[in-house]
Structure formats: structure tokens, C-alpha cells
């Protein structure tokens, strides 16, 4: 199935909540994302049984969630994008659609501060449990120390400026 047919199938079901963007990419309404995802998985023509990656991107004013889908049977691909409000990024979880979304969402949540509503396991995945801030946001300021361990250290070999030659 080529991209035009995929878009047609999606538009027939969801109307204007799905828009065609770049080639291979559609932009979806964040409120409808769970329904669209379920439709993509279960429609026999689309057959997107695999979620390849779920990424978050911090754009000015919005946080984009990007889903890369693949169908192993039909051998076609689709990218679904959805934009969330940067001040209050919330989206419903997709772990009931693709099980792999569970870990992808946990990673996205801790690194970009996106709240996945209804997620069964909202613990941190990669970062320590007491980590503050969302490292992949553009305005993130890295800490200078962690529990008293400094992140920088002076070079013991390099001489201080102005020190006499030995």
C-alpha cells in the first residue's frame, strides 16, 4: 500500500483530525491518537503491528510526539506526529495498542516531561529516581553536582596561570 492510499484510508475514518504533512508523515490530533493508533494496528489493510520508535522532540512552543510504524506483512511504513502544549504536555498512553510503547513512553516521560495518561508504570527508567528536570528539553540546565559529587574537576597536571616555571 503506498502512502496516498494509507492517507485516504485514515481520512475516510477520521476526517480532518488526520492531515497529510511531509511524504510518509501524517499529523494527527493529540486527543484522537489512541483511536488512530488502534485503527492503524487493527485495520487489515494498514496492519501496522509494529511500533518501531516513539520519540519526543522539544520544538519552540510545542512538544512533538513522533510514532514510527511499520507493517511486517504489508511492508509499508508510516510516521504519525502529534503536537502537545509545551507547558502542559499530556497524551493518552499507547501501551494498550503496542506493548513496546510502555518503555518508550517511560523514557519519553522522564527525558521530556510528557505525561502519558493511564500509563501502568510511571517510574523513571533511565535516570535515577531523584533526578530533577527533563534533560532533553532545550531549556534544561545540567546540574553541577550530584549528591556532592562534582561534575567537573580541575586538571592536576595543568599549571595555574601565572605560576612560575619549574
Amino acid at each position: 500500500m503506498n502512502f496516498e492510499d494509507i492517507v485516504k484510508t485514515l481520512k475516510a475514518e477520521f476526517g480532518e483530525t488526520v492531515k497529510e504533512a511531509a511524504p510518509g508523515t501524517v499529523v494527527a490530533d493529540p486527543g484522537e491518537i489512541e483511536k488512530i493508533a488502534l485503527f492503524c494496528r487493527d485495520n487489515p489493510l494498514l496492519d501496522f503491528k509494529a511500533l518501531i520508535a516513539l520519540s519526543g522532540v522539544d520544538h519552540p512552543g510545542r512538544i512533538e510526539i513522533v510514532l514510527h510504524l511499520a507493517s511486517y506483512g504489508k511492508k509499508h511504513f508510516l510516521v504519525i506526529k502529534t503536537a502537545l502544549d509545551r507547558n502542559k504536555p499530556e497524551i493518552s498512553t499507547l501501551e494498550n495498542v503496542w506493548k513496546t510503547a510502555n518503555w518508550h513512553e517511560r523514557e519519553c516521560a522522564e527525558l521530556l516531561g510528557v505525561l502519558f495518561k493511564g500509563h501502568s508504570d510511571p517510574r523513571k527508567l533511565l535516570l535515577p529516581d531523584d533526578w530533577l528536570g527533563y534533560p532533553l528539553r532545550k531549556d534544561y540546565v545540567p546540574p553541577t553536582e550530584y549528591h556532592g559529587i562534582s561534575h567537573s574537576r580541575h586538571n592536576p597536571v595543568e599549571k595555574k596561570r601565572g605560576a612560575p616555571p619549574s
Partner: peptide, 21 residues
């Protein structure tokens, strides 16, 4: 599958975002 999702903002010589799958 080892994939890179790379976003460019068009002005910088650094990637805007790299996601590694």
C-alpha cells in the same frame, strides 16, 4: 533494527534532536 531519527533546524551545524532506536 538500529535507527536514528534526526531532526535538523536548518541553521545550526548541530542536530536539533537525535533519537536512537
Amino acid at each position: 533494527e538500529l535507527g536514528y531519527y534526526v531532526v535538523s533546524d536548518g541553521v545550526s551545524s548541530k542536530p536539533y534532536r537525535v533519537k536512537i532506536r
